[in-house]
């Protein structure tokens, strides 16, 4: 599946100096093709997360369109959009993202369960082993460290084998070794399974793993 942005922009209405609005993302057109890992970097507040959220279907753009192949993402109703996102995308959000009442494995299988799909247990276990959290499968999120929770969120996204994986600062709270583990997992996922990875990060290491690097500054994608 190819994700295509057509002049996508996001404007927030707020007082900023002379203007009454603030353009978090200036109109952007780009394409994310399968089989590659795209890294979006830039300074804080440059609009990276906003763009990622618009591409992943979480945030309605104020201008432009997002296409998943031939589907106009934001023309869908909530139910259809939710289903499409659940089937086609994997999301690694910023910050802590766990349902505390479920075990680690259950958390990882949650997206599939929301739609009663076949549970990707095998893939989950495989990715858990790869990222070194296999022994934690029956633990509760409350018993995990920040880095372990982060990797759990990453496995949750990978295990669904989504067409596009959106990751927002996925290595923010990982040490160097784990960062490399995650980045190579992403790259393998993109290359071997012919999927797309779209990642927002500050991490310079990430650039080494990327097939394509986009920079963002003041809401504009520069390269």
């Amino acid at each position: 599946m190819t994700v295509k942005a057509e002049g996508v922009s996001r404007r927030y209405f707020r007082k900023t100096g002379t203007a009454n609005y603030f353009d978090a993302v200036q109109p952007v057109s780009l394409e994310i093709a399968p089989g590659g890992m795209t890294v979006l970097t830039g300074r804080s507040g440059s609009g990276k997360t906003t763009l990622l959220n618009m591409l992943s279907g979480l945030l309605v753009p104020t201008g432009g369109k997002v296409w998943y192949d031939d589907t106009d993402l934001y023309a869908l109703d909530d139910r259809a959009l939710s289903r499409l996102r659940s089937e086609r995308t994997g999301v690694v959000p910023q910050g802590r993202s766990a349902v505390d009442t479920l075990t680690v494995l259950e958390n990882i299988l949650l997206p599939a369960r929301l739609y009663q799909r076949e549970l990707p247990v095998e893939a989950a276990v495989r990715w858990m082993e790869k990222l070194g959290i296999a022994p934690l499968r029956d633990a509760r999120p409350a018993e995990l460290s920040g880095g372990e929770l982060r990797r759990m969120a990453i496995v949750r996204a990978l295990a669904q084998a989504p067409d596009v994986l959106f990751a927002d600062e996925p290595t923010g709270d990982l040490d160097d070794e784990n960062t490399r583990l995650v980045l190579s997992a992403f790259r393998d996922f993109a290359h071997e399974e012919k999927k797309a990875v779209f990642m927002v990060t500050h991490e310079n290491d990430a650039l080494l793993y990327a097939d394509r690097v986009l920079r963002m500054d003041h809401g504009q994608v520069t390269s």
Partner: peptide, 12 residues
């Protein structure tokens, strides 16, 4: 919010 991010619909 997390569940919605993971694809849960409003109706669910």
């Amino acid at each position: 919010g997390l569940r919605k991010a993971l694809g849960a619909s409003d109706s669910s």
